[in-house]
Amino acid sequence: MTVRVQQVSKRFGRTTALDAFSVALGSGVTGLLGPNGAGKTTLLRILATVLPPDEGSVRVLGLDPSQPADRLELRRRLGYLPQDVGAYPGFSVREFVDYVAILKEHTDRRARRAEVDRVLELVDLTGKAYARIRSLSGGMRRRLGLAQALLGSPDLLVLDEPAAGLDPHQRLRFRELVSAVGTDRCVVLSTHQTDDVAALCRDVVVVNAGRVLFHGTPSELAASAAGRVWRSEQREPGATLAWVSGDGSTRQIGSPPPGADLVDPTIEDAYLVLVGAKALDDAEPIAV
């Protein structure tokens, strides 16, 4: 296994971000799904060696990040896209990626220039290489973050909401790029986009309140909601969630009545069964 997390807990004051969290991930693309505050970012920061766990053990690429020598070696083999890259607004795109390349020990100037050109081309930012970061749109900044994470073709790619703010064309390009990396290396990404998970991920981990609710393939996740999704003319009492779909029928999730018109669940349905219903238990019903 490329990533092995065992009984890891992390607290920030009175808030428990991860609670005896355990997961093992191999090569390929793994998606972390979960609501805001579920613990996804905390887990990714621990994997990226920028946050130590309070308890439990972590092994990444066979290395123990709690040991200084292993941590250094891991950082050499890691690409990390934080939720907020924090790129310096006064820098140009090329200047910032070059800066990160220097931090990543790309000391040969000509090789570094070629590598910077390569990653900018990969994320389609070559035409913006000399634009100031303050002038970039949110999607472009995300691509800039992805570019620096790809420097040096890392063995492990940790991406915190990499597709946020990307337009449909760029999302397709992002999927193409990440799936290519995931063919022989490990990519762990967090997302709120269930369609990205369906399109990209070999594995999916659903996280809520610092715990693993589900770990399996996207198709297994979708199958876990079999018999819980149905269609009818109007909302029924057993529905935890219901909405009118494009064809005018009402798609419902919950406990179907006898003889209900069951439909094949999607990943989003299964995610809502696992997490959404629980979250909505405490919420006020929406009046339209």
Binding site: L78, Y80, P82, V85, K104, E105
Partner: peptide
């Protein structure tokens, strides 16, 4: 003050 410090921390520097 240094917005990119988290990113810097994940590098070997």
């Amino acid at each position: 003050f240094d917005t990119a410090l988290a990113l810097t921390a994940a590098t070997p520097y």
